[in-house]
């Protein structure tokens, strides 16, 4: 079986995988990085979204062998160096951007990709960007609010 070596969250990691092994399976099964989730089998849900060489990638759409030599970022590497939540993660907690937490790693990684490209997205741009990430719990309101807040913008809060 081929050996793939990736720089994951700043650490060199290797795994022996079959040619047919998906990147998400290598992360979860071989490297025990179970924060990246599998929510579907048609590349629709976005729960497996990671960054490969700085780009947002659904890790169920890529073979592990294709990621050989790549820089990969996953949810496990997102917190600040001191272990505290980063700006996006903190905004998700502050604005109730998650409930069951299953789609959350993909949402956070997707939000990070958006804000890298577009540091001050409008609400419509956020909703449009999240087309590839499905959440069944929140109605997306808390997620949209969190991304607005993480980009330093005011949040149109729903009444409580």
């Amino acid at each position: 079986m081929p050996t793939v070596t990736m720089n994951i969250n700043g650490r060199q990691m290797s795994a022996n995988v079959e040619n047919r092994t998906l990147l998400v399976a290598a992360l979860r099964e071989d490297l025990n990085l179970t924060g990246t989730h599998v929510g579907c089998d048609t590349s629709q849900c976005g729960a497996c979204l990671v960054h490969v060489n700085g780009k947002a990638v659904k890790s169920c759409t890529m073979l592990a062998v294709e990621a050989d030599g790549a820089d990969v970022e996953t949810i496990e590497g997102q917190a600040n160096a001191d272990g505290s939540l980063n700006v996006i993660q903190q905004a998700f907690q502050d604005h109730h951007g998650l409930q069951c937490g299953f789609c959350t790693p993909g949402m956070v990684m997707s939000a990070a990709a958006l804000l890298k490209e577009n540091p001050k997205p409008t609400e419509a741009e956020i909703r449009n960007h999240l087309e590839g990430n499905i959440c069944r719990c929140t109605g997306y309101q808390g997620i949209v609010n969190a991304i607005m807040a993480a980009s330093g913008q005011s949040v149109a809060m729903a009444a409580e």
Binding site: R28, T34, V38, E76, Q78, L85, T104
Partner: peptide
Amino acid sequence: EDVRFLTGRGKYTDD
């Protein structure tokens, strides 16, 4: 509970 979910440390059955 958000902290573990936001950092990839949630433990779901498949994990």
